[in-house]
Measured scan of single mutants.
Amino acid sequence: MTEYKLVVVGAGGVGKSALTIQLIQNHFVDEYDPTIEDSYRKQVVIDGETCLLDILDTAGQEEYSAMRDQYMRTGEGFLCVFAINNTKSFEDIHHYREQIKRVKDSEDVPMVLVGNKCDLPSRTVDTKQAQDLARSYGIPFIETSAKTRQGVDDAFYTLVREIRKHKEKMSKDGKKKKKKSKTKCVIM
């Protein structure tokens, strides 16, 4: 069974824990209790493949930012979460993405942009803004509501699919490099 290491990042209060708990335990946590770091595991079937999701729910508070490099190193894919009623959390996505790329030393890291709290009427981040940002990053965008469960499975499952595509691409690139290195030079 394939294991996928997913990391949920975003500013404090955007609903990272609520999304994760909704996926794992099928219930909505409405009281806000700032996370330092929590880890969850769940076995699911995605596109006919049974897999184990190892999900790291991270601290959004700035005082825990020193811990970010460590979990970013171990993560295979990242859910970059903002709240649709919090423009600052949307603007912060850029910083999370840049930090992930720096730590992973790669421009090509599996990510999904997630606009959470889409059940709320007080939207300050337009869907088109988020779609445009995701398009500019070359990553999928999904709106979710941890409260109603809308888009929750889709967000995590899409990230797994992005990781699969990335692994497939990397193995193809690896095979191309191996083929090239088999060419021999004969000096007579």
Rank of each mutant, 00 (worst) to 15 (best):
S65P: 13
T144G: 12
K180Y: 14
D38L: 05
K117G: 13
L79N: 00
M111R: 00
S181Q: 09
K182C: 14
V45S: 11
K128P: 09
P121K: 09
M67I: 11
P140T: 11
E3W: 03
D92F: 06
K177Q: 07
T50S: 07
G15W: 00
C118F: 09
L56A: 13
G151F: 07
G151S: 05
E31K: 10
I163D: 03
R102H: 03
K16S: 05
A134G: 03
Y137D: 04
S122T: 10
I55M: 09
F28K: 06
E62P: 10
I46A: 07
K184Y: 02
R123D: 14
K42R: 07
A83C: 02
I55N: 08
E63G: 10
E168I: 05
M72Y: 09
V114N: 00
R164H: 07
T2K: 14
G12V: 06
C51R: 05
D92K: 13
Q99H: 08
A66G: 09
Y157C: 14
G115F: 12
C80T: 02
S136H: 06
L23Q: 13
D30G: 09
A59T: 13
V81S: 02
A155S: 03
D57M: 13
F78R: 01
T50N: 09
L6M: 07
A134V: 02
D126V: 08
E62C: 09
D69K: 06
K104L: 12
V8N: 00
K167V: 03
Q61V: 10
G15V: 00
V109M: 04
G115R: 01
A146I: 02
S65Q: 08
R123S: 14
D126G: 11
V114M: 05
Q131I: 10
V81R: 00
H94W: 12
S17C: 03
L113D: 00
Y40E: 11
D154C: 10
E143L: 09
L120V: 07
G48S: 05
L6K: 00
S39A: 08
K182G: 13
D119Q: 01
D108H: 10
T87R: 10
M188R: 15
I139K: 06
K180R: 10
L52V: 13
T20M: 10
K178E: 15
R102P: 01
I187L: 15
E37A: 09
L19D: 04
R135M: 08
K178S: 14
V125N: 10
I139S: 05
F82A: 12
I142R: 02
D108R: 04
A134R: 01
A134P: 02
S65M: 06
D154N: 12
D132T: 08
K167F: 03
K167E: 07
G48D: 07
D126N: 10
E76T: 13
V44Q: 07
K88Q: 11
Y32I: 11
D154S: 11
V160C: 02
T144H: 01
P121Q: 12
D69H: 03
V8Y: 01
D33N: 07
C118R: 03
G115T: 02
V9K: 02
V109N: 00
E91W: 09
N86V: 01
C185P: 15
V109D: 00
R164G: 07
Y40L: 11
I93M: 04
N116E: 02
A155F: 01
G60Q: 03
K172G: 15
V160T: 04
L56T: 14
T124K: 10
S122K: 07
R68S: 12
A59E: 09
D132S: 09
C80H: 02
A11I: 13
L133P: 02
S89D: 03
A66E: 12
Q150C: 05
D119R: 00
R135S: 10
T2M: 03
T127N: 11
S39M: 07
I139T: 04
K184T: 10
E98D: 08
K167N: 11
K42E: 07
G174K: 14
T144F: 02
K128C: 12
M72D: 06
E143D: 14
A83N: 15
Y4K: 05
V7S: 03
K128L: 12
P110K: 01
Q22I: 00
A130L: 13
Y96R: 01
Q22V: 01
K165A: 08
Y71I: 14
D153L: 14
I163F: 03
D119A: 01
E107P: 05
E31L: 05
S65Y: 05
